[in-house]
């Protein structure tokens, strides 16, 4: 049986891991290469890097980070943030990433999903969606959560699936940074509305039931978190033992 995945996310700025609260207040959380190696040893099923650098030099730094991590850590690596063109995707895959995650660029230019999945295969194209609820509807936000779009989340998910996306990385802006638990309602609505695997993101806190809840009630295929892992609030091996004992299909090391 396919295991539910636990995915630590590293927000990387200028080669260092940082974590924001509600997309603001960045603080340093350590060297991404050693953090990745530690997570892999503790049983992380995959690692996501989010490049939050705005400059071209920053992008090159990010590729160097991925290249270094890929030489040490032999689990799947996903990179997102600032990926705009087919050439950006090519470069990040060449540096050792297994998947590229698109957000703003996919909304602005949906054709890129189709092109990229034809060239590299659906399996390496992840669509990241920042979702926020307004008047009982979830809307897609872009530009790191600063700009609302016309897209309703459920429609956008259908669209990206049709265009050839391989996976959805779904961040609830309402839950993100709260540490009060994942957004079960949003995740469940999306997961039951698509044939693509859904990675739930935003809201994980110290209570490990947040994870069993998002798998059992939210129908998530994977769950992503950042600060609780960076700051050792929750240890990945403890979390996986907890999930295993709860009967969630889990890969133990």
């Amino acid at each position: 049986m396919l295991a539910k995945r636990i995915i630590p996310c590293l927000d990387v700025k200028d080669g260092q891991t940082v974590k924001g609260v509600n997309f603001l207040n960045l603080r340093h959380a350590g060297d991404p290469v050693s953090l990745s190696a530690r997570y892999s040893e503790e049983g992380a099923d995959e690692i996501v890097f989010l490049d939050i650098t705005a400059t071209n030099e920053g992008r090159d730094t990010m590729r160097n980070v991925v290249e270094k991590v890929a030489k040490q850590v032999f689990i799947p690596l996903t990179v997102g943030g600032g990926i705009r063109t087919i050439d950006d995707i090519r470069k990040i895959l060449l540096s050792g990433a297994d998947k590229a995650s698109l957000n703003t660029a996919a909304v602005k230019n949906p054709e890129i999903i189709q092109k990229a999945s034809q060239i590299y295969g659906s399996q390496c194209i992840v669509i990241a969606i920042d979702a926020k609820k307004e008047n009982n509807e979830w809307f897609v936000y872009i530009n790191a959560g600063t700009k609302k779009t016309e897209w309703k989340v459920l429609d956008w998910v259908k669209e990206v699936e049709k265009l050839g996306a391989g996976e959805i990385l779904l961040t609830s802006m309402d839950a993100d940074g709260t540490q009060n638990g994942f957004d079960i309602e949003l995740t469940r609505a999306v997961s039951l509305n698509t044939n693509l695997p859904v990675i739930a993101s935003g809201g994980a806190g110290a209570d490990m039931e947040h994870f069993s809840d998002i798998f059992e009630q939210g129908a998530a295929d994977a769950a992503l978190a950042a600060s609780i892992f960076h700051f050792d609030t929750v240890k990945i091996n403890d979390l996986k033992n907890f999930l295993y004992n709860k009967g969630v299909p889990t890969r133990l090391k």
Partner: peptide
């Protein structure tokens, strides 16, 4: 959901000299 993406468990057969029942 297709593709299958993630860790799955092996169930080895007797015709196996290199693997064990791992994810």
């Amino acid at each position: 959901k297709v593709p299958q993406i993630g860790w799955n468990e092996l169930k080895i057969t007797t015709n196996n000299t290199v693997l064990t029942n791992d994810y």
